[in-house]
Design a protein around this nucleic acid. Structure first.
Length: 82
DNA sequence: GACCTGACTCAAC
DNA sequence: AGTTGAGCCAGGT
């Protein structure tokens, strides 16, 4: 089980209406200081099962996610995410 | 195996 | 409060 796999598991466990920061994911993944790796891995593995859009920056702002979404994210936010 | 990159975060200016 | 520099991690080249 590599760190990336752990990150995937954590992100996939995010419930609707909940958002985790890269730091939170890193902590749950086992390495509280691996926030760097989290962003890096997610960027290279944009799996459809991974709601990367639910992963935001610690300041509460939206992260990158260059995905083909865009406004879909806003819709998702309306689902329950602030 | 070493160096570079990146969707980050924190502390200091 | 905004910008800059430094620090950390895993993956890719």
């Amino acid at each position: 089980m590599t760190f990336s796999q752990r990150v995937y598991s954590v992100v996939k466990k995010i419930s609707k209406g909940s958002v985790l920061t890269y730091k939170q994911v890193a902590e749950k993944s086992g390495s509280p200081k691996a926030y760097r790796a989290v962003g890096n891995i997610l960027s290279k593995n944009t799996d459809p099962l991974i709601p990367c859009h639910r992963v935001i920056k610690t300041n509460g702002d939206f992260g990158g996610y260059n995905g083909l979404m865009g406004r879909k994210i806003a819709l998702l936010n309306q689902e329950g995410v602030e």
